[in-house]
């Protein structure tokens, strides 16, 4: 089912992204992965069509974070394939994938607590360095060379969108409030113009108002045509901006479809009915 989806998406138009760059598209095919002897993902097929927002929903422990870890290269699948814009990048390191345009905001920890806000922004500019190694180069071939991005550019974008970060540029990021920390983390997506954005539980431990604010920004990025994979436990927050919803249970995708289609399965999945 998901392969069909990928095919239609690849054939479809590419909204938002000008400059004739072939849009990267993230795809997992038959991925199995786990921790040591314990397998957590039992064959996951998932595709993020170019320019669309896919929400990956599921209860605690379903394997959502593990799926994202495979997507961003932090975890190597024991079998199956990870594809970026149709090219297999299975086994690429996380830093290579980051430089190829996969921007991941991990669960809880999207920032370096012991660096200042400004230094955190500086670290973000690394994502636009040229990938190292022959193979990584071959992966990035075809994609137009992205110019590097300077600290000043990122600072400008960040402070314009979140003035509060500008006021606190010299403060240690670990001393910011939870919402401000997530804003800082999101800046990476704003400032480095990634091909795919992976978000893991952006809402964790935050007040509803802050969550709404953050997802407003995600919605705006989506409207600009960024491909986004959102992992959430609380479905209501993401259903409005999602084009597609994948429902995950016990390491398998059990349902994929438009938000309205999947919605009725949701409560059943969460309540175990």
């Amino acid at each position: 089912m998901s392969t069909d989806m990928a095919a239609t998406a690849a054939a479809g138009p590419v909204p938002g992204k000008g400059a004739g760059i072939e849009p990267p598209l993230l795809e997992l095919a038959g991925v199995r992965a786990g921790y040591g002897p314990i397998e957590v993902l039992h064959g996951v097929d998932l595709a993020v069509p170019a320019g669309s927002v896919v929400a990956l929903l599921g209860p605690n422990g379903a394997g959502k974070t593990t799926t994202l870890n495979v997507c961003c290269g932090l975890q190597r699948p024991s079998s199956g394939e990870l594809r970026l814009a149709g090219r297999s990048v299975t086994g690429a390191s996380a830093e290579t994938l980051a430089r190829l345009g996969v921007c991941t905001i991990p669960e809880r920890r999207g920032i370096f607590p012991n660096l200042t806000v400004r230094e955190n922004l500086w670290m973000m500019t690394q994502a636009r360095s040229w990938p190292r190694g022959k193979q990584a180069r071959s992966w990035s071939r075809g994609a137009q060379a992205q110019p590097g991005v300077s600290l000043r550019d990122v600072e400008e974008i960040a402070y314009a969108r979140f003035p509060v970060l500008g006021e606190r540029r010299g403060q240690l990021a670990g001393t910011l409030s939870g919402g401000q920390q997530q804003m800082l983390a999101l800046t990476r997506a704003l400032g480095t113009d990634p091909a795919v954005l992976l978000l893991d539980e952006l809402s964790m431990g935050l007040a509803p108002r802050v969550v709404r604010e953050l997802y407003e920004i995600v919605g705006r990025l989506a409207a600009e045509g960024m491909s986004i994979l959102i992992v959430e436990q609380f479905a209501r927050t993401v259903l409005p901006i999602a084009d597609q919803v994948a429902l995950m249970l016990h390491g398998r995708i059990v349902n994929v479809g438009a938000p309205s289609e999947v919605e009725e399965h949701l409560s059943a999945a969460y309540l175990g009915a």
Partner: peptide, 23 residues
């Protein structure tokens, strides 16, 4: 220097540094 700041960052969270494209 970005390398130096990266060195201060790496002890906090090496995987996160990778996610930002650092090594």
């Amino acid at each position: 220097t970005r390398t130096g700041v990266g060195m201060r960052a790496v002890v906090d969270d090496p995987p996160l540094l990778q996610l930002t494209g650092g090594r």
